[in-house]
Design a protein around this nucleic acid. Structure first.
Lengths: 339, 339
DNA sequence: AGCAGGTGTGAATACGTATTCAAGTTTATT
DNA sequence: AATAAACTTGAATACGTATTCACACCTGCT
């Protein structure tokens, strides 16, 4: 194992000083063409590459973003993860990733790990943070953004889709479709995404005189959603439409209806989901759903985070990105609405 | 933004020297109980946490593993990713992650990024490395392991399932089921996983006198697999069984058969996949498939990688982990085989 | 009491780089 | 041609920690 080659070694080989080597590899710093040539040649011959750790230690910039993510079984997050990785890499940042159970205590511990590694910023994908934690981060000057999760107090930045508006769209669509008994298997009510979609949905329902539709919490889980489905159909007044809090649960609902209850989707019962993950377009599901534009959401997170890092402007900002209702076969289509 | 609190600050506050503070936070180093108490109190009061960058710079251990992954749309890899994250964290390591297109050139660039960050080891999940790259890593003393991909020359470590054996199992199962026209939509033949499964399958077919069954490369892609399915059924001699190179493609094959060709799965045609991802057990698919034990494979990669890091023993090792055939409804069950 | 051996601590240094500062060199200006 | 201004470069230093080394201290032995 040969000793690592350092900027000193390159300097010696090129007959210049160590700072000159450093300057050659620091963008935006001028070095005469002659010396630059010599340094680059020497560096190439020796196989020199700058040590990022040493660089970060002195600049205070690690060029690393901490990413904490839960629910990786939901393909929406893997799509987002992939996009984040590409986008951040394009902008020169690396990702240090952790999976977290959704307990706040767990998240706190992981965030401290990230801080120890001097990350320049933190993205929380579908997990929330304790306020003790966000205060600490504010002190430390490390920006934090929630991805696909809002926060009650406005002191913390987030990027979500327009969940309230999306819930409204679904209710309007189902009501226009002449459905009489519309139920909702919601996302986890402890999460803003689950709560806001539900609230928007209920708002429109009330506006149209559908008082107190049945709502069951599906907890963003396939199993809970299947159980909720069974409970909805164990009563006398069975639904003719179900708005499901995300696609991941909707697939489970569809399968439960088809397999266990022999109910036909799109005719006997209309199903509408939320997210528009790739699987929603699969022939097995053909799921009508509200699109969360993962690409634009990721761009927004990255833009906002980097702006905060480089601008040192930590004023929180809540971004909501609107998405259309994507109409497929899983729900009856109202007259005059196009597929 | 308050200045970062360093070990110097803690030393001053506790009335000791900086090295003493360092020793308190370095496991396996003795400090008298009295001083340790004072240091821990001062550290707690000031909110001190050691700077991992500075520590890594001097120890030469970043406690970070580089992970490069492709095909994140295949749930097998997200399951593995989740497990890797948890396992590595338990053992004190962090993950720096990159998504890579499957071009070798792309991978080389990313690996250099990782080396610049002084990662202690590298895992390549379903991507392969150029030999120029592996030589460089060997020089550098940074261990590399391939996950779910083998390599022709034996100089590089890998963890895979027993793909050849798995391909054999499928062929034996389908032949025992009295299938007459068995075809194979293979995984990408440029990848060892795709190739080995195919080879094992063909071997058994030949042993039983089925000469030259139809094989089409599905490239691990849903679209290519759907196209392959159509081409198989565009001929006069249509298959009564298809071995598909992984589950991800198998779902696409099943949907194409059901939706476009109105063929019933498990009766008209038997489908067998490979991986046993969670989705295979979904009621919509009920896919018979060879299980790749993701947990055990991840444990093997992590064990092997850490052994190489800590033992500095870089002798390559190829690990193969056997997995059972999981029998479900997507393929006719031979007499005497239990579901 | 005297000395060998062990233990805990601080001073000094190292890790590999970016940056400040002063000195040296070139270019522009009158 | 002389001086001011602009630009390059190297010496020295800083980042925050872990580790070597020497020293002082305490223990247990003859």
């Amino acid at each position: 194992m040969p000793p690592k080659v350092t900027s000193q070694d390159v300097a010696r080989a090129a007959g210049v000083s160590q700072p000159t080597v450093s300057r050659v590899f620091t963008p935006g710093v001028k070095v005469s063409a002659a010396l630059e040539e010599k340094v680059r040649n020497a560096a190439h011959d020796l196989g020199y590459r700058p040590n990022t750790l040493a660089r970060s230690l002195i600049t205070g910039q690690s060029m690393t973003i901490g990413l904490i993510v839960a629910y990786l079984d939901n393909p929406f997050y893997t799509e987002a993860l992939e996009k984040m990785s590409r986008t951040l890499k394009e902008r020169g940042y690396n990702i240090m990733i952790f999976m977290a159970a959704n307990h706040a205590s767990d998240v706190d511990g992981v965030v401290h790990d990230l801080l120890d590694h001097q990350v320049d910023g933190i993205i929380l994908a579908s997990v929330s943070a304790s306020s003790a934690l966000t205060e600490r981060l504010l002190e430390e000057g490390v920006p934090l953004i929630l991805f696909n999760r809002g926060h009650s107090d406005q002191t913390i930045s987030s990027v979500t889709s327009a969940n309230h508006q999306g819930g409204r769209k679904v209710a309007e669509f189902l009501i226009a479709g002449q459905h009489q008994r519309i139920a909702h298997i919601s996302g986890w009510q402890g999460a803003s995404t689950g709560y806001d979609r539900c609230a928007g949905f209920l708002e429109v329902m009330a506006e149209h005189g559908h008082s107190a539709p049945t709502v069951v919490d599906g907890l963003f889980s396939r199993e809970a959603a299947a159980a909720a489905t069974r409970s909805l159909f164990a009563t006398s007044r069975t639904p003719d439409a179900i708005f499901v809090g995300n696609d991941h649960m909707a697939f489970s609902v569809i399968e439960t209806l088809q397999t266990e209850l022999d109910i036909e989707i799109g005719t006997d019962v209309s199903i509408v989901g939320y997210d528009d993950v790739a699987m929603s377009a699969w022939p097995s599901f053909e799921l009508t759903t509200v699109r969360q534009p993962a690409n634009r959401m990721v761009d927004a997170v990255v833009d906002q985070l980097i702006a905060q890092i480089e601008g040192k402007d930590l004023t929180p900002k809540q971004v909501e990105i609107d998405g259309p209702l994507i109409i497929r076969r899983s729900a009856r289509i109202p007259k005059g609405w196009s597929e």
